[in-house]
Measured scan of single mutants.
Amino acid sequence: MAAGGDHGSPDSYRSPLASRYASPEMCFVFSDRYKFRTWRQLWLWLAEAEQTLGLPITDEQIQEMKSNLENIDFKMAAEEEKRLRHDVMAHVHTFGHCCPKAAGIIHLGATSCYVGDNTDLIILRNALDLLLPKLARVISRLADFAKERASLPTLGFTHFQPAQLTTVGKRCCLWIQDLCMDLQNLKRVRDDLRFRGVKGTTGTQASFLQLFEGDDHKVEQLDKMVTEKAGFKRAFIITGQTYTRKVDIEVLSVLASLGASVHKICTDIRLLANLKEMEEPFEKQQIGSSAMPYKRNPMRSERCCSLARHLMTLVMDPLQTASVQWFERTLDDSANRRICLAEAFLTADTILNTLQNISEGLVVYPKVIERRIRQELPFMATENIIMAMVKAGGSRQDCHEKIRVLSQQAASVVKQEGGDNDLIERIQVDAYFSPIHSQLDHLLDPSSFTGRASQQVQRFLEEEVYPLLKPYESVMKVKAELCL
């Protein structure tokens, strides 16, 4: 049975990233139509530049190519590739079939990587351009969430054990800070992308030097003109047959890092959902379990974690691919890159769409948070109580021993009897502590235990987050809708 299948058929496997999760716009960027249309555009740009620099290419040939950029006979191309065992030459023939007058000058002087690699770089750039505003929107939604809850005390956790208090907004800023680093890295790697350009079979530009009869300047002009037509500021000066596969490492490393950030955020949300302090959106008709109707599973956060793990592992592909590119190139890269580049971007696209949807509907339960604080705060307040007693004339050592005994009794009630923490009640009825009984409410005010959390939130948002989001103001209103 021949390899390949009808990918629109229910009898043929289709990647869930495309069929179930990723956005239509990201799927289109990695589609065959987008790819092969870009090949034709690159052939047109090459012909236009070659004509401008004096090669015998007519206006009629150029116009014929322009008129057929979208006229792609995919069936013919597939048949040609089956016959020739070469995808680029299959599309040269297919393009030439609908451009008979231009057929002889299509791909003039070029090698397969002229269309293959340059198209990949265009796709990487455009895919990054799709991700950047999506990530900015996630940051914006979380920034709104953090600002609104900047002063809401909550129990902090280290080692997932109760620690000092923080605020809900401050905790959210930990998430935002990681995503801001990801946004900066995505922008950097996007701006650092260079075009492969017009380089020939081993990167020496020998074929173009021959076409222009040894004119170095025209060869350099050709490279520059096509690079500018493709919208790049610069091209690699040095290439082998391909652009260095280190570029793929750079791009997928940034995406993998984004995956790590999203995994951490969504894990926190899942843990908070278990504590009943916070939940992701839950639709009115949504079913959490087929057997347990009360369940409210954090399905979206779980999906993000599941896909983020996949995204983090994909960076190993370009690392290994770059390491086995012998001399000017081997074909070890080809099949692998067809999979890992598309999957990385479709996965990143999915987790950003999902995280935006989550961040637009996060639900906080202040009463649950308050109750958990009441359970733990008495123990945390013991040092403040000791200091207040010393100020009232008591002995630190005597007070410490009193607190120690009462704390152990209260802990026994919590752990052995399943009761509430009654340390404060014990202190309130103990005559030894009568000098500070009137101060206990103040000493137990949760806001006095959150330090500068709310001020940190305000400063972080104003100095770091809002300036970073400013270039994306025009796209901030787009909502994230999930079908599944």
Rank of each mutant, 00 (worst) to 15 (best):
G5C: 11
G5A: 10
G5H: 07
D6N: 11
D6T: 13
D6G: 09
S9W: 15
S9I: 15
P10E: 15
P10L: 15
A18V: 13
R20P: 00
F28G: 07
F30L: 15
D32K: 11
W39N: 07
Q41R: 14
Q41M: 14
L42R: 02
W43L: 07
W43A: 00
L44D: 04
W45K: 02
E48T: 07
Q51D: 04
Q51N: 07
G54E: 13
K66G: 10
S67K: 14
N68E: 14
N71S: 11
I72Q: 10
D73N: 11
F74M: 15
M76C: 15
A78T: 13
E81G: 00
K82E: 14
K82N: 13
R83Q: 13
A90Y: 05
H91D: 03
V92Y: 03
T94P: 01
F95P: 00
P100Q: 11
P100W: 08
A102V: 10
A110I: 05
T111I: 01
S112G: 06
S112P: 01
Y114T: 06
V115T: 13
V115D: 03
N118A: 06
N118K: 00
N118G: 09
T119A: 14
L124V: 15
L128G: 07
L130Q: 08
P133L: 15
V138A: 14
I139A: 09
S140Y: 15
L142G: 02
A143F: 08
A143R: 05
A143P: 00
A146G: 08
E148Y: 07
P153Y: 06
P153I: 05
L155A: 01
G156M: 01
Q164R: 01
G169Y: 02
G169T: 03
K170Y: 02
K170D: 00
R171W: 00
C172D: 05
W175A: 05
Q177A: 12
L183H: 13
L183G: 05
Q184G: 12
Q184H: 11
N185F: 07
K187M: 10
D191S: 08
D192W: 07
D192I: 08
L193Q: 09
G197E: 02
T201F: 01
F208G: 06
L209P: 01
Q210M: 07
Q210F: 02
F212C: 09
E213T: 15
H217A: 12
H217L: 10
V219R: 04
L222G: 03
D223T: 07
K224R: 12
A230S: 08
R234K: 11
A235V: 15
I237M: 11
Q241T: 00
Y243L: 09
Y243E: 07
T244W: 04
D248E: 10
E250N: 10
S253M: 15
L255H: 12
H263Y: 05
H263M: 06
H263P: 03
K264W: 02
I265A: 13
C266D: 05
R270Q: 06
L272Q: 07
L275M: 13
K276F: 08
E277W: 04
P281K: 05
F282K: 08
F282L: 12
K284N: 13
I287M: 08
S290G: 03
S290R: 01
S290T: 10
P293E: 00
R296H: 05
P298F: 03
C304Q: 05
C305P: 02
C305D: 05
S306F: 01
L307F: 15
L307P: 01
L311Y: 01
M316W: 14
Q320H: 09
Q320Y: 12
S323G: 09
Q325D: 05
W326F: 15
W326V: 05
W326A: 05
F327I: 07
F327G: 11
R329Y: 01
D333K: 03
S334G: 11
A335M: 00
A335C: 14
R337E: 00
R338E: 04
R338A: 02
C340R: 03
L341I: 14
L341R: 07
A342C: 13
A342S: 14
E343C: 05
F345A: 12
L346T: 13
T347V: 09
T347D: 10
T347L: 13
A348S: 11
D349M: 09
L355G: 04
S359I: 09
E360P: 04
G361H: 13
L362A: 10
P366F: 02
I369K: 02
E370L: 12
R372C: 04
R372E: 05
R372V: 03
I373L: 14
I373P: 02
R374V: 05
Q375K: 04
L377P: 01
L377A: 03
P378H: 01
F379C: 03
M380P: 00
A381F: 06
E383G: 02
I386T: 12
M387G: 15
A388I: 05
M389K: 07
A392S: 11
G394R: 13
Q397H: 07
D398V: 13
D398C: 12
V405C: 14
L406D: 06
Q408N: 15
Q409Y: 07
A411P: 04
S412Q: 13
S412V: 15
S412L: 14
V413G: 09
K415A: 10
K415H: 05
Q416W: 13
G418R: 04
G418N: 03
G418S: 04
D420Q: 06
D420G: 04
D422Y: 09
L423A: 05
L423C: 03
L423M: 14
E425S: 12
Q428W: 13
Q428T: 14
Q428A: 09
D430S: 14
A431P: 14
Y432D: 09
P435I: 07
I436G: 04
H437V: 10
S438E: 07
L440E: 03
L443D: 01
L443P: 01
L444V: 07
S447T: 13
S447I: 14
S454R: 13
Q455M: 10
V457Y: 02
V457D: 03
Q458A: 13
R459E: 12
F460S: 03
E462L: 15
E464S: 07
E464R: 05
V465G: 03
V465F: 04
Y466S: 13
P467Y: 07
L468K: 07
L469Y: 08
L469E: 03
K470T: 14
P471D: 15
E473S: 15
K479L: 05
E481S: 15
